[in-house]
Computed example of a mutant assay.
Amino acid sequence: MCLLVSLVVRVGVVGLGAIASQHLKSLTKIRDVELVAFADIVFEKAKEAAEKYGGNAYKDYREMYEKEDLDAVYICIPPFAHKDEVHLAAEKGIAVFIEKPIALTSEHAWSMVEACKKHGVVTQVGYQLRHAFPIVELKKLIEKGELGRLGIVYATYLCDMTSFLRTKSWWCDKTKSGGQIVEQVTHTYDLLRYLFGEPVEVYSYMNKFWSVDNPNYTVEDGHIALIKMSSGAIASIIATNVAASSYGGRHSWFLVAEKATAEFDAGSLKLYWRSEEKPYTEYNSREDLILKEDRIFIECVKKGEETPVPIEEGAKTLDLTLKVVKSWEKHAVVK
């Protein structure tokens, strides 16, 4: 990794879907960023982005890499679409921001990691929840030992994705998305690793009860996983993508530790202490986490420093989600 000589970070984007639009909106708010190139297999999307933000449009990211002088690239494509876009960027010394999940197989993910390490490029994975102020504060408390021994962790990820059927989205096809565990609840499993260490044992159940008669919706309707963590904590993850739309969505966490019980999410942290001297502490935050993670990435690119969420973190979290899937397929504990 090397210090960027120019003060301006020249950015290209591969994939111009919904998540790319969020990053583009954020990047326009960051000084020293120049959006110079856009690539999408649907050329009209690339052309629209180029007309809106300036720069050049491409149908093939390989051509974009060859013709453009890029400092960084945002890779915002569906899981099934990953091929060699990371490897080629690394070979050209281009810093890589990649959305989750970084691949559908462990082998593909770790080949990305190897390529980026070989060429020494700055990388970051789009696990924006790690940057949320309440999560950062909880991480500090855990590392300082202020919560004592960690006991029970309980997390939920409840949402409604059934509307995606009307748009015939790739998300509904498990061979393309990896399913809810791999594509969506990856955020939950990543935070689990970030806060409580690496998994030691994994056991899971999956269920199909809403989409059982719908051949166009092949992802799991819900799952429950039990995971023993290296920190000593035992975690239970409960998730569904077919909650009633009138319910909305929920991504919440609970932790019972030796010295406190915590309730938290990306916006708040409530700590109920056993000590009578300090019975309750609360942290609240309303942040634009996409903008925050983009600022972090751009600063690291400018300084030639490793980001807080390098690409190997994406590979490790993918491995955990694949173990959750494997446990159900094998009906066995996976270590």
Rank of each mutant, 00 (worst) to 15 (best):
K139L: 12
W210D: 06
W170E: 12
V5M: 08
K168A: 07
I135W: 03
V256I: 10
K208H: 12
E277H: 04
E99D: 14
T28E: 15
L195W: 08
M229E: 08
V212R: 13
G12A: 00
T186L: 13
V113G: 04
S204L: 03
I234H: 09
S246T: 10
C300S: 07
V42Y: 06
T186W: 12
V113M: 06
W273D: 02
E313I: 13
D84R: 14
S163K: 13
E146D: 03
L147W: 00
G17L: 06
Q124P: 00
E114A: 13
E66T: 07
S252F: 11
F97E: 01
A235Y: 02
W170V: 12
E183V: 07
G17N: 03
R286L: 12
I311P: 00
L226E: 04
Q180D: 11
I296F: 07
V200D: 05
R62K: 14
V212M: 06
E276P: 04
I224W: 05
S252N: 12
D294P: 00
A155W: 15
K117V: 03
S111M: 06
Y154K: 14
V136K: 09
K100P: 06
A235D: 00
S285K: 09
L4Q: 14
L88Y: 10
E114Y: 11
L70I: 05
A239Q: 01
F164R: 15
G267R: 11
L318R: 09
E91R: 15
G54N: 12
I77G: 00
G222C: 07
E68N: 05
K117M: 02
D32R: 08
Y203E: 15
Y272S: 05
K292H: 11
R62N: 12
F254S: 03
A109S: 04
V242R: 07
S111K: 13
T317C: 12
I75Q: 04
R295N: 03
I296H: 01
A39P: 02
D288I: 10
I238K: 05
I296C: 05
P78Q: 04
K292Q: 07
F43Q: 08
E63T: 13
V136R: 11
E85H: 01
P78A: 11
Q128D: 01
E329L: 14
L70Y: 02
T218Y: 08
T28Q: 15
D190R: 10
E68K: 05
A103Y: 09
